[in-house]
C-alpha cells in the first residue's frame, strides 16, 4: 500500500456509497470548503484498524446529519424513523466496513488475510478535521452537498 492509493480509496468509497445507499459523490477541494459552516457542524469519525501482513487504519469522517441520510437510504426508511435515528452512526460504521474490505483486496493481493476490527465511532472536532485533512493519505469528497473526509494510515 502506498500513499497514491488514496485515489483508489476514493473510488472504492464512491462505488460502495452508490451501491449501498444510492448516494453520489463529487470532487471537493480545500479551496471550496466553507470553513465557517464546518465550525458549526458536528462530525463523527468511524475507523477500522486492520492487522495482517502489515497493520493500518482506515477512517471516514462524516457530518452527523449526513449519517441519518445514509441510514435512511440504506434502509429505505423515512429520515425521522426510529430505526434511522438510532442507527445513523452505525450506518457509517457499516459503510466503512464494506469500503475497508473492498479497498484491501483492490490494492493488495487477494490471497493475503487481514483481520479487521469492528468499526469504532467517535465524535470528531474541527481541529482534528483540519489536521487530518492536511495529510497525504486523506481525501476530501462531497456527498449530497456535505464534506466527507476519508483517510488511511499504515
Amino acid at each position: 500500500m502506498k500513499k497514491e492509493d488514496i485515489a483508489v480509496l476514493e473510488e472504492v468509497f464512491s462505488d460502495v456509497l452508490e451501491q449501498t445507499a444510492f448516494m453520489f459523490t463529487d470532487e471537493l477541494s480545500q479551496d471550496n470548503l466553507d470553513m465557517a459552516s464546518l465550525h458549526d457542524t458536528d462530525f463523527i469519525q468511524a475507523f477500522i484498524t486492520f492487522t495482517g501482513p502489515f497493520n493500518g487504519l482506515i477512517s471516514i469522517t462524516f457530518p452527523e446529519d449526513l449519517c441519518y441520510e445514509l441510514a435512511a437510504n440504506i434502509l429505505g426508511e423515512e429520515l425521522n424513523s426510529e430505526l434511522v435515528r438510532s442507527e445513523g452512526q452505525g450506518a457509517v460504521g457499516e459503510l466503512l466496513n464494506v469500503v475497508c474490505g473492498q479497498f484491501l483486496t483492490t490494492v493488495e493481493d487477494e490471497k493475503l488475510v487481514f483481520d479487521l476490527s469492528v468499526p469504532l465511532i467517535e465524535d470528531f472536532n474541527i481541529d482534528e478535521w483540519i489536521s487530518l485533512e492536511k495529510q497525504e493519505t486523506s481525501a476530501l469528497i462531497e456527498v449530497e452537498e456535505h464534506p466527507v473526509l476519508i483517510h488511511f494510515d499504515i
Binding site: 474490505g101 490471497k111 487481514f114
Partner: peptide, 8 residues
C-alpha cells in the same frame, strides 16, 4: 461478509 481474501 466484506471479507475478500481468497485464503479466508
Amino acid at each position: 461478509s466484506t471479507e475478500g481474501s481468497t485464503t479466508r
